[in-house]
Structures are given as structure tokens and as C-alpha cells.
């Protein structure tokens, strides 16, 4: 996926929304900037398929040696897929954050959260300020 086409949370998650059989499907990951800031990742905790997520609420965690970062969902919905190979291949998050590094897919029940997200330009601006 082209990072320019994605929407971003202030907390550095990206989301891609597609139509799939009448429902909206969100693919969620974390940005290259976030992975770089977290430095060496050592662990990841993922939810299970079938679980519910809520916009603004954490659904998992990534850990470096001395920090824990919750992963926040940008939308409400049901988790339909989890990239369960990630915890054993954390390097994927750094090498290919926008494709192979996707984290969960969610069937959206409420997408009003999307309106609050940043587009690529706005997100880049935020990263420049933080970096």
C-alpha cells in the first residue's frame, strides 16, 4: 500500500478502508515513523479474531526493551483477521510496515472515527514536529 493513500491516527496507527461485500473493511498497522521511534522491538501482544474493537481504545501492544506502546483502533468493529506471524517476525514491522506488516483487519460497524484521522500530509507534519 502506498503510505500516501492511508489515513493516520495521532497515535501513529495507519488505516486503509476498503469495501468488501457490502461492509467496510479496515486494515490497520503502525507507521514507519512509529517503528523507528520505538527502536528495537522485542514483543507484541495481539487480540484474537472475533474480538471487538472500539475507536480510541487499545487492541494490542508493542514493546521495546524499556517502553510499551498500546495500539489504538481508529474505528469500531469486529476483528476478522490478525497477522499472527508478526510476534515471531517483528522485523517485518520495520521492513514492510504498510503491506506485510499489517496488524489486524476489522469489519467496521461505526466509521465516524475516521473523520478525526490525519491524511498523509498532516501526519508527516506531526511527525516532523515530534521528531
Amino acid at each position: 500500500m502506498d503510505p500516501k493513500d492511508l489515513l493516520y491516527c495521532k497515535t501513529h496507527e495507519w488505516v486503509h478502508v476498503a469495501q468488501e461485500g457490502g461492509a467496510k473493511l479496515a486494515t490497520i498497522g503502525i507507521s514507519a515513523f512509529a517503528v523507528e521511534q520505538l527502536t528495537d522491538l522485542v514483543y507484541m501482544e495481539l487480540p484474537e479474531v472475533g474480538g471487538e474493537v472500539q475507536a480510541g481504545q487499545p487492541f494490542g501492544e508493542v514493546e521495546s526493551v524499556k517502553a510499551v506502546s498500546p495500539l489504538y483502533s481508529p474505528v469500531d468493529g469486529e476483528i476478522v483477521a490478525v497477522n499472527s506471524s508478526l510476534p515471531d517476525h517483528l522485523e517485518t514491522l520495520g521492513e514492510d510496515p504498510y503491506d506485510a506488516g499489517w496488524i489486524i483487519k476489522v469489519r467496521i460497524t461505526d466509521d465516524s472515527g475516521l473523520a478525526r484521522l490525519l491524511d498523509f500530509a498532516a501526519y508527516q507534519k506531526q511527525c516532523a514536529e515530534e521528531g
Binding site: 528495537d40 522485542v42 514483543y43 514493546e63 521495546s64 526493551v65 524499556k66 517483528l90
Partner: peptide, 9 residues
Amino acid sequence: RPDEVRAAR
């Protein structure tokens, strides 16, 4: 400088 990343991974 022990490798703490390795220790945790």
C-alpha cells in the same frame, strides 16, 4: 553493554 534486546527477545 549487555544486549538487552536479545535478553528480552
